[in-house]
Design a protein around this nucleic acid. Structure first.
Lengths: 316, 316
DNA sequence: CCCAGGTGGTGTATGTCGTACACTAGTGCG
DNA sequence: CGCACTAGTGTACGACATACACCACCTGGG
């Protein structure tokens, strides 16, 4: 009840994730074999069907034998995560000084998102392994670093780079979730999704008084859908692009467009020029808005502002 | 194994959701009381702690007594979903002819997203009730219809309106998921998140060879984070706005800005004007880009296009 | 040779869970 | 009175993770 899916001993988990994968050729059980079989089971029958019993049976051992090699199910799943992310083939960078990605950030980010999308196709259970304290293994770390390197190309601030990666990673996860719920239920019930919804006449009885729903229905909005992944990814990246452009305009504001002398109360940058009109406190409209938000969140320090979180490597 | 969390009898579920909530004043058990207590338990102790046993105990009845009123746990959770969405207070529209939302779509969409965000704060378990075949009850239906009415204000095509609602709803869900994982683990372990990560020195040993990670770390990208919800919502809505603008420019392009005579290979629209420069195949830059994407995706027709889904009312 | 100690696999037991099934007590109606 | 129906109960089953005691084997040291 207290530590639902949490690994009890993080140090041990780190050791398992980063330790030398001892493939010492024995015939009996070993860690990599257990992880591989667990992935196989989860791929085939879904995460809820993944149990220590099943994995052990498939391997021809008893349930408890697994516990000689892995401390528990939580740790096993961490290992599964890191292993499949390894399929992306992102090796650790050669040396710590390697430069940010070349090429434009957008195509890089799109490629990163699509690679993860494909990974989620192969391993649908990935979407159900969320958690802020998932310990990143070497593969997850390398992949996350790659994402950061790509996002650095936007030229945004560090906190924004992190937020961009989190946003895009989160989007991929959501899209995968939505698609896989459909596929899972089709597989489990044996009935196609459209078929299932068509036979819900008793529901459509109640749908009369909803105007927009009816309009969308008649206009075919539910028949020929946008591909939710392509559509959402395009919008998300567009949103990031707009932020970048706006930042450029902002600097432009400071230097040329709003030439009042002074110092911005938010970002501290200075500017000068002809003094006309009312003296201003902020270098740009964006900074004024930022100050407003800051004031606002300071007074109503509401629940779930999500501040002071410092997890690393959990973009997805 | 076959029907993990699926209601066995959809018709019965619809009846429960849409049926007259008989509050006939009896002293014993009734549906609304069970649902209310289940919500209370889930709010307090999380979804994994929600069991038929616990709900029954809290109500002072035996486990099996619940099954006289609700067919099973899956149906109970559908009822919980619809009940809490009812807190948003979106009544069913008065008559089927009611107009699309007035006001601009953006502030409406933002308000809708923030209302759902607040709802997810109150009921964190909502994020774990996904599924393409969740049967919408009256409250969910009313709320979804409202979202569609707002999104109609964008002037986009019907399929795009649906996709926008799905995108924004999915974003809220992801953001809530990310935040609540942090809060849950803090609550369960009694250790704050930043504290927990700080004591993972054995992990930071391995973090040396990742360049971008180090740069972000030094630049403070992990210390003072963007608020992931505000940041993501702004980017997502920006992305939608850009789509709208692009649609406008498209029409504009055809009629005035690019007056070369010809017919667009993508949208088929015609234009004419002074013939100067190289003859062009597309009416606008947007259409040229669209053609490029189409060519690109046609060659690498990857798995999981996710088409032909026709679920209704599952924006989140 | 014996024997201590480590390693790897096993068997049993505990406490969860959802829910099938058979049961009882109360109620209304002919 | 008998009958059917309803609401609540109790027991039981098979799933689950895993704690704990146990045993078979190997290795090295005396």
């Amino acid at each position: 009840m207290t530590e639902e899916n949490m690994a009890a001993d993080p140090a041990r988990t780190v050791e398992l994730l980063w330790g030398a994968k001892e493939g010492h050729g024995r015939t009996g059980l070993n860690l990599t074999g257990i992880v591989a079989m667990a992935i196989e089971v989860a791929d085939a029958d879904g995460l809820p069907a993944l149990s220590m019993r099943r994995v052990a049976e498939r391997l021809g051992f008893t349930t408890m034998s697994l516990y000689r090699h892995v401390p528990g199910k939580a740790e096993l799943m961490e290992l599964m995560r890191d292993t499949v992310v390894g399929e992306l083939g992102v090796a650790a960078p050669d040396h710590p000084e390697s430069e940010p990605e070349d090429g434009d950030w957008r195509s890089g980010m799109e490629a990163w998102a699509r690679a993860h999308w494909a990974l989620h196709q192969r391993h649908p259970w990935l979407v159900h392994t969320a958690g802020s304290r998932r310990l990143p293994g070497p593969n997850i770390m390398a992949d996350y670093d790659r994402a950061l390197r790509i996002a650095e190309g936007t030229g945004l601030q560090a906190s924004e780079v992190v937020a961009v990666v989190q946003l895009v990673g989160g989007f991929v996860k959501t899209a995968a979730l939505q698609v896989h719920e459909v596929l899972r239920e089709e597989r489990e019930s044996g009935v196609s999704n459209s078929q299932w919804w068509r036979s819900r006449e008793e529901l459509f009885e109640h749908m009369r008084p909803y105007p927009a729903l009816g309009r969308m229905w008649q206009a075919g909005g539910f028949d020929e859908r946008e591909n939710p992944f392509d559509f959402g990814l395009a919008r998300t990246l567009d949103g990031v692009e707009l932020l970048i452009r706006r930042r450029r305009d902002e600097k432009c504001d400071v230097n040329a467009l709003h030439p009042h002398a002074g110092q911005c109360l938010v970002c501290g940058s200075e500017w000068d020029g002809a003094r006309r009109g009312r003296p201003r406190d902020y270098c740009s409209r964006a900074c004024r808005q930022r100050a407003y938000r800051r004031r606002r969140s300071a007074t109503s320090a509401s629940a779930g502002s999500g501040g002071s979180v410092s997890s690393v490597g959990s973009a997805f």
